[in-house]
Design a binder for these strands. Sequence first.
DNA 1: ATGAAAGCGCTAACAG
DNA 2: CTGTTAGCGCTTTCAT
Lengths: 331, 331
Amino acid sequence: MAEIARIAGVDISTVSRALAGSSRVAKETRELIDQIVRDTGYVVNERGRALRDGRANQVLVIVSDIGAPFYSDVVQGIVETLAERDINVLLGVTLRQSKREEKLGNQLMTGVVDGIITVTGTLPTTILGMQGLSSKVVAISRPVPHDGVTCVTIDNYAAAKEVMVQLHSMGHRRILHIGGPTSSETYRERSAAYVDFMRDNGLGEFVNMRSTDSFKDDAESGFAIMKSMLDDGLHATAVFCATDELAIAAMAAARRANRSIPGDMSFFGIDDLKVAGLMSPPLSTVAVPRFEMGRKGAEALFRQVYRGAPPSDKIVLDHRLVMRDSVAQAR
Amino acid sequence: MAEIARIAGVDISTVSRALAGSSRVAKETRELIDQIVRDTGYVVNERGRALRDGRANQVLVIVSDIGAPFYSDVVQGIVETLAERDINVLLGVTLRQSKREEKLGNQLMTGVVDGIITVTGTLPTTILGMQGLSSKVVAISRPVPHDGVTCVTIDNYAAAKEVMVQLHSMGHRRILHIGGPTSSETYRERSAAYVDFMRDNGLGEFVNMRSTDSFKDDAESGFAIMKSMLDDGLHATAVFCATDELAIAAMAAARRANRSIPGDMSFFGIDDLKVAGLMSPPLSTVAVPRFEMGRKGAEALFRQVYRGAPPSDKIVLDHRLVMRDSVAQAR
DNA sequence: ATGAAAGCGCTAACAG
DNA sequence: CTGTTAGCGCTTTCAT
């Protein structure tokens, strides 16, 4: 910029103003500067700007594993939304290791980013003391245990209950449940809906659920859990899985054990991943607006961090039951 | 930091040295400063550091769509690798729109990032004139049309040829091909291997391929193309798809048209996505080291950008044929 | 071993 | 309308 000023024979501050589109610059001066900028291919140095402005125009998105389809769709929504607002997205993965999460927290502390969107249900302890924290953070899909933090979710209890109502209406009574990590409120709600529904409908004796532990791949867990259930001789006509990934893996395990789907066993998932409809048989599930969750979360964070809006507690998006051929009338 | 210096009663430069672990600081001074830093919870401002150092310790990863499983696995490898080296990853998505890609190029120009890893096979024109460009960029999976840029790939021609050899050895002669976007060298090679093999084995008359255009979702395209092939009455015992996503969608389309797999038709993909083995029937494919590609690409960029190493042209990783039940002996 | 001072590139307040 | 000046937070000579 100093270079531009030198060539144009004006002060650097005039160049700055011209580039900022200030009205207090003579038309001729502006045109001259614009011309030189074009000729030299000059672009502003954002690092200088960031230091001066006291903000980075960047936010951090924390996921446990971007390879999981659920997260990657949420992130896509976030990135698209923030790109429209000229905010950059830093991607952090925790691999469910708190050490990595702590380190990511530093990005906010050191001013590398202006805010955080987390899809892990946890918050780095490094940032817990930070002032004004709740307006610098948004949680998506999984709420964080911290007051006043905006959380974008669906009604997990209701969604799971709808699945149960549907299975029940098709004659299923012996229904198994494969749950997600109980450390997450999201999965606790889905599982609670299963248990409650069974009890409320006099099926308490058939309640049987196993949950993944948090430190394993969903697909791997789903396969292993379904296999263990079958090995243990559990009898059931339907299996309600807390996610599509679990369901897809569980179906594979059931087929491996020579169960036909949905002849012997019906399967339900939650998420409506893109592959769900392409499976054989296509998977019944609950459509979760992943992309939209990312978008809404990004919008909320943007408003809070860059527009001074207050946090908004809970933003609940709609879900939708999707019936496909993995579920049949109970025999 | 000024605050720390004030409390400690030393100069700010001494604090800087102490925090940097310089040997030219008295033990007592260092301990005092460390204590104050702990008490106050001070952390350095990375923006100031970035301006002063002339680098951002960040790199940009460009993908067309992070929701696609192939890319998200590559990105996972990149993020993990660079996190170990304290380099941040900015995620940029192009949605295959050059406008968005151009804009991402500015991140390098303006100093927001020190380098770029692209998985799109293209380079923003905004950075083309940049000096030392080739050492600031690494391409993964798809080479970019620019001299001297490191590219991490597999041997696509060989991989596709192995698929063909396998199908041929199992008696398949009438083999269809569903190709990826011809704008990408990667897919041109895979398709070329198909065509070459067919011709070289006297099957030229059976050559029949259709490719996705670049602007559509793989799954959607795969379904539509397979459907059109069946609608057009093309006769075949096997379909070789350029990616697993295409294959999965194509299988769904074939089933929809009452083809049994692999009874009526065998299917082959490339990638070995996690779901490939969970399909029914499990999909035969070529395992591509997506995570490792990300890792190798990230390492290469790190060496080039932060260690001054020269670009290394091509880095070719191993692939592996994976036979599963979607392929059977031709009848 | 420590301090003083300069400067990374930018913008905004103030003066003219 | 334009120039001068200061300062964002940091590191690194150069003195001492």
